[in-house]
Structures are given as structure tokens and as C-alpha cells.
Amino acid sequence: MTDAPMTGVREQEANAADGLKAFGFWVYLMTDLVLFASLFAAYAVLHTSTFGGPSGRDIFDLPFVLAETVLLLTSSFTCGLALLSARAGSARGTFAWLCATLALGASFVALEIYEFAGLVRAGDGPSRSAFLSSYFTLVGTHGLHVALGLPWILAVMAAILRRGLSRSSLRKLMLFSMFWHFLDLVWIFIFTVVYLMGANLL
């Protein structure tokens, strides 16, 4: 598929191809959801197996988690604004909102690394107990997905720099934003099941 202007049948085919890619990515995200579901299941089984180490109540810092949540949710918001800018045809606006998304996403990852590093330094790393293994893995897998999204944002930005708001750039942006919102959704589950229920607020 090129970015050359198209009409008629070729445009229809190009739209269909883009729709196909989006549909394919949706299905891929659903498989990712099953992956997270397996990690949630492991967490559900293991979260009381603290083996003499700390439990969730001991290690969860809810204000900190709230900060992470705000960062991630806001980044989802800015990502939405980027998509709107793109639809409105403003390359600069899109670029700017993507920068904001990148910054917020990077801050989220940084906070999570900070939290994990602190736990490891205190001797409560993932090899301490089954609970900690499942906590680190569930939350860490989500964080890894977010971290992988960061170079993706750069790639989308590079595409916009190269080709402006072309068909392919718009498609890349669309797929990225699906991914980003999906991670938001997973975070809401993590926030609820791991942190709020772990701290016995639910």
C-alpha cells in the first residue's frame, strides 16, 4: 500500500485493507487479554501465599498507585486528543499530543520501576514468595507492555515527520491508540483487583 492519493476502487481496496489491519489488531488485543487473564488467575491463586514474607497490605502504597493511575489515564486522554488532531488534519497538534502521551507514559514506567526497585532493595523481590512472584509478574507484564509502547509512539511520530498525516501514518496512529487504551483497561483491572482489593478497600 502506498500513500499516493487514490480514488474509486483503489481507495475502496485501501480502506478495506486498513480496516482489515485494525480488525486483526483487535483480535490480537483479545489474545493479549487472555494472556493477562492467565496472569490474573495466577495472581488470584497465589496472592495469599506470602511464605512468611510481606502481603499486599504491607507493600502497597496507595497514594503512589493513585499517581501512577492518574498518569496513565491522562496519557490515554492525550492519546485520544492526538487522534482527534490527526482526524482534524493538524500534524503539529498530533505531534504535540503524542509528545505528552510519551512523557506521561514514560513517567508511569519510571514510577513503576521505582516501586519495584524499592521492593527488591528491601529484600521483597519476586523470588521472595509466590505472592510477590505473581504481583511482580502481573503488574510488570503490564508495565512492560507500556514500556514497549514508548518506542512505538516514537515510531508513529517518525512516520508523521516523514510523511505527514498520510494514510499509513493515520493507520499507525490508530493501531497504537487501540493498544494504549487497551493497556488502560488492563490497568483498571490491576488497580482494582491487585491494589484496592489487596489493601482491603473492596
Binding site: V45, H47, T48, S49, T50
Partner: peptide, 28 residues
């Protein structure tokens, strides 16, 4: 102490006569 606090309800597994029944969904 630990059994009562940190591992209160090993699902289906009572620590003294550890039963190997299939773990039920965990309730904290």
C-alpha cells in the same frame, strides 16, 4: 502466627492436615 495471619485460608488447604483438594476461588 503466620498461619493465622498471612495464610489464613490457603484455599482448601488446612495447614495442619493439609488436604490436597482442588483450591476453591480464593477469598481474602
Amino acid at each position: 502466627n503466620d498461619m493465622n495471619m498471612d495464610m489464613p485460608s490457603m484455599p482448601g488447604m488446612d495447614m495442619h492436615s493439609m488436604d490436597m483438594r482442588m483450591p476453591m476461588p480464593v477469598t481474602t
